[in-house]
Simulated assay, not measured.
Amino acid sequence: MTKKKSIFVWLCLIVLVIGLVFFFWIRNRNSHNIPVHAENATAVQVAMASQTDVPTILSALGTVTASQTISVTSLISGHLEQIYFKEGQYVQKGQLLAKIDTRPYEATLQQYQGQLAESQAQLTNAKLTLARYQRLYAQDSIAKQDLDTQTATTAQYEGAIQSAKGQIASAKLNIEYGRIVAPISGYIGIRNVDIGNLVTSSTTNIATITQTKPIAVTFSVPQTRLDEVVQPIRNGGKLIVKAYDQQGKTVLAQGEVGVISNEIDSTTGTVKLKAIFNNDDNKLFPNQFVNVKLQTGNLNNAIVVPTAAVQAGTSGQYVFVIDQTSTAHKVMVKTGPQTEDGKTVISSGLTAGQKVVTTGVDSLGNGSKVKIVKAKQVDLSVLDAASNKKSGHGPR
């Protein structure tokens, strides 16, 4: 290699090295020009504070109670002769439920009817004798004492007839009591006695009937909220009550407040209420525990945000508001009631249209820079494929 060629090669190598150094220098400088706040921005999800009408709700735990609960008993003593109902069936008022052996009472009835006939015959004879004594006394043929005695005898037989008639009516009533009928409409429970057993008067509970249409729910509200309940009802209004399942998600029935207790429970500081429900679909069952929500009024044009946006601190409740420069600001707020769709009323501290952080709050501080992101949509087909793969089932 000649000297000129050697110099040329070295120059090329030097240019190449300088070019590579310059390239990496430019690349490194551009990477360092990224704004610091963009690198440290916290990813959050936000929601808009909105304005709407919100119903004022009182929440409580309630117990379902039957409108009426009747123990089916016999008013006479005797052997259970027949049963005409199936356990658990719905029975109508006046429906025949059971039959008691009434033959002893029928025999007694015949006895009293015989006594009545005897007394009537004696009364007829006594009246004839009294009429004869009255004629003889008018002729001064008998003493006044004999006439008085016969008059008393006649009255005695009249009393015996009245007594016999009363005994006959009582015997007929006992025979009628042998037919046990449903005093109310409702579902009859488990039978407590079998055919052939001796049923005693007013002590043997044959079964129990519960009236579930309508049905009631009892619950209590704090005495501090009493005015919200008492005043509308005493002014002739109606307060709507909704009964939810134990998870508080599914509405079982809707009714209205029917009764307010006349006193405050001094041990709990609450007032007991009773709400009445039609229960046409039988979703409420006696002794069932339900979550109760009582609507006492409406807040017009209230500011609401998702409940997840409201945080609690040592100095009170607050939310993080995002301004137009993507900066989070801690704002103290006062809250009101919660709505059924998972939102909370903001009484003060916010205006409609402000953005509040709902997800990512734990990583924020006052003045933190944020990057607003949207919740990712999950492809259900991917989840199904993963589930099938895990269970060992492939596509069909």
Rank of each mutant, 00 (worst) to 15 (best):
K343G: 00
T339E: 09
V382W: 06
S347V: 15
Q324V: 13
G365S: 13
S363W: 09
G360S: 01
G349I: 04
Y318R: 02
A328S: 13
S348F: 06
K374W: 02
V378T: 13
T314Q: 15
I372W: 04
V382L: 04
V370L: 03
P337V: 13
V378H: 05
K334L: 12
T335I: 15
T344P: 10
I322F: 13
T339G: 07
S315Q: 15
T325P: 04
V345W: 04
G342L: 09
S315I: 08
V373F: 01
G316A: 09
S348H: 12
G365N: 13
G336L: 07
V345Y: 04
L380V: 13
G360F: 03
D341P: 01
T344R: 05
N366K: 05
T351G: 03
V361H: 05
N366S: 10
G353Y: 07
P337F: 04
D379I: 06
K374T: 11
K330T: 12
S381T: 14
K369S: 14
K374S: 15
G336N: 11
K371E: 03
L350F: 06
Q317R: 12
V361I: 14
K376C: 01
V319S: 08
E340V: 14
V357H: 00
Q324A: 14
F320E: 03
S363H: 09
G316Y: 10
G342Q: 12
V373M: 03
S347C: 02
V382T: 14
G353F: 07
V345E: 05
D323Y: 11
G360W: 02
T327N: 07
K374Y: 09
D341W: 08
G353C: 02
K355A: 02
T358H: 02
V370S: 00
M332E: 11
S363E: 10
E340C: 00
V331F: 12
V331Q: 14
A352P: 06
T314D: 12
E340N: 14
Y318C: 09
V356H: 00
A352Q: 14
L380T: 09
T314R: 12
Y318V: 06
S347Q: 14
T339M: 09
T314Y: 12
T358M: 03
V356G: 04
V331H: 12
A352K: 11
G316T: 10
K374M: 04
H329C: 10
I372Y: 04
T358P: 01
G367L: 07
Q317K: 15
V321T: 08
Y318Q: 07
T325Q: 15
V356T: 01
S315Y: 12
T351S: 13
I346E: 00
K371S: 04
V373A: 08
A375C: 00
P337A: 09
H329T: 12
I322T: 08
H329G: 10
T327A: 11
T358E: 00
T325G: 11
T335H: 07
T344K: 05
L350K: 03
V333Q: 04
V357R: 00
T314V: 12
G349D: 03
K371M: 09
G342P: 00
E340Y: 06
S368R: 02
I322H: 08
V361A: 09
Q338F: 10
V357E: 00
D379T: 01
Q338D: 11
I346N: 01
F320S: 04
K334R: 13
V319C: 03
V361C: 06
H329M: 08
G365M: 06
V319W: 13
G349K: 05
D341R: 13
